[in-house]
Simulated scan of single mutants.
Amino acid sequence: MTALDTAAAYLGFRSHAVLAETAADLLPKFTLSTKVGFFPNTGGAEHSLDPSRLRLAIEKAARELGREPDTVLLHNPERSLTSLSPDEGHALLGSACTALVDAARDGLCRAWGAAVWDTRLLGVIRLEDLPPPDVLMVRAGFLVGIELLDSTTVLRNVWQAGETWGMSPFGGGNGKVWEDFDPRPFLRTPHDGLSRAQAAFRTAFHLPSAAAVAVSTDNPGHLAQLVQALGAKVDTTAVSQYLRALHGHRQS
């Protein structure tokens, strides 16, 4: 494992400090990404795309981590856009993107992007003239519906995103799904004894096509199994057939 992904809001806004304390001198050996956009308040957390608050959050992240993160992502930017008109959303998202572009230019991170939970909510924003993100992190895997997969494809093409990263391939840890559904036929044979969870994780790199997929766990053995699954080959023809079936089901 060589990459870590976190967010300012994780662990009750203590994730950066805890990670720095836990990893100590090992932290520089990892590629590190984090997210900004949620801020503590008396009710727990509030979301904001205010560029000055984002800039301060990025500076704070570097201080707490003891190093600059490699990538900084806008954390669920759609949260602050849903109540705005398309023009207002365009202006607000544009100013937020510019804040991250400036942070990268100033050496506070190497790359920037957005972690979007519901890509459909950005569909009304005119993205063509906004700064294109280096990274677009989106939900990935079998538990993502075809409408969301289609909106993700449109979003990353229109916004001219660089890399796509996946997240939440297990849908929040709903293990019962994999008792009822076996994703191993989506791997090329032989499966080398891989579990259903391993097959689901490996196939998530193609739903949608992603350069990386982030997972969370408190079980090192689980992470070891997922790393092992990276050596498996995905049957891309089976994945294409699956997507066509989802489209057909939606249209029927």
Rank of each mutant, 00 (worst) to 15 (best):
A62V: 00
D192S: 12
H191Q: 13
V158F: 01
T153H: 15
R244L: 15
L121W: 02
T189D: 14
D134F: 05
I58Y: 00
L65Q: 10
Q225I: 00
P133W: 01
L32W: 06
G113K: 01
S33E: 07
G145N: 12
F186L: 15
H191E: 14
T98R: 10
H47A: 15
N76H: 13
R250T: 10
R55S: 13
V154A: 13
L49W: 02
E78L: 02
R196K: 13
L122Q: 01
G248L: 08
T71W: 12
G113F: 02
E59W: 01
G166C: 04
Q251N: 13
A91F: 12
L108R: 07
A96C: 00
S195R: 02
R14F: 00
D87E: 15
F30Y: 15
K176R: 07
P220Y: 07
A224V: 11
L243C: 04
N174A: 12
A91N: 08
F142K: 07
P169T: 09
A211S: 15
V227H: 11
L11V: 01
V215E: 09
L4R: 06
C109K: 05
P169H: 08
M1T: 10
H90D: 10
S168Q: 05
A140Q: 11
H75Y: 04
A214W: 02
A115M: 02
V213G: 11
T2W: 00
L100H: 01
P51S: 07
A245N: 05
E59D: 09
A24H: 08
F30Q: 11
A3I: 08
S168P: 04
L108W: 10
T82G: 03
C97I: 03
G12S: 07
F39E: 04
L11Q: 14
I146Q: 09
H90T: 12
E21N: 08
L230E: 15
E68V: 14
S216P: 00
Q251S: 13
L121Q: 14
E21F: 00
L56C: 06
S85K: 04
F170S: 08
L65S: 05
L54C: 02
R55K: 13
R202Q: 04
L243M: 04
N76Q: 14
E21W: 06
T98Q: 14
R139W: 05
A24P: 11
G107R: 01
A61Y: 05
V234F: 03
G145Q: 09
V158Y: 03
F205E: 08
F181N: 02
G141Q: 10
Q160A: 14
Q198E: 15
V135D: 06
G12A: 07
L143P: 02
G43L: 15
R188K: 13
R250I: 07
W117R: 10
H191C: 12
G231M: 01
A197W: 02
L11F: 12
